[in-house]
Amino acid sequence: MVTNEFKMSVDSRSVNESFARATVAAFAASLDPTLEEINDIKTAVSEAVTNCIVHGYKNCVGKIYITVKIRDKNTLIIKIRDKGCGISDIKKAREPLFTTLGGDRAGLGFSVMESFTDKMTVRSKVGAGTTVTLYKTVNGREK
């Protein structure tokens, strides 16, 4: 059962990366997460939002749609979506060290999202966009 929900959209400008992760973290604060859990959430959200900016909307500025739901009192379901270029081979994109950009990109964004959450799903269609869903159960200071 979903008990609380939050939606926003923001322009795909890099200056909004810190705003997006801080906003999701602030919404999650009602679950009384530990400092480590807050950091995990912020880090995973930062990766997904950055990917929308640097990959999805590589050559333009578009909207990033973020929805956060709280399910069963303590599970966060965070959806981060762009209407950008999409991913042709999702399996390959999720492999550690795979990157299509090079330079200072390490190709570890998806690996970070996976290891900092409980589960991650990726849906994408070339030319239509990408949706990353992150699941994170917040145990807090063991209530």
Binding site: R21, N39, K42, T43, S46, T50, D104, R105, L108
Partner: peptide, 13 residues
């Protein structure tokens, strides 16, 4: 105070 995978790129570069 915060770091994501961009920090990895920074160090590797």
């Amino acid at each position: 105070t915060f770091m994501d995978s961009s920090g990895i790129g920074l160090v590797m570069g």
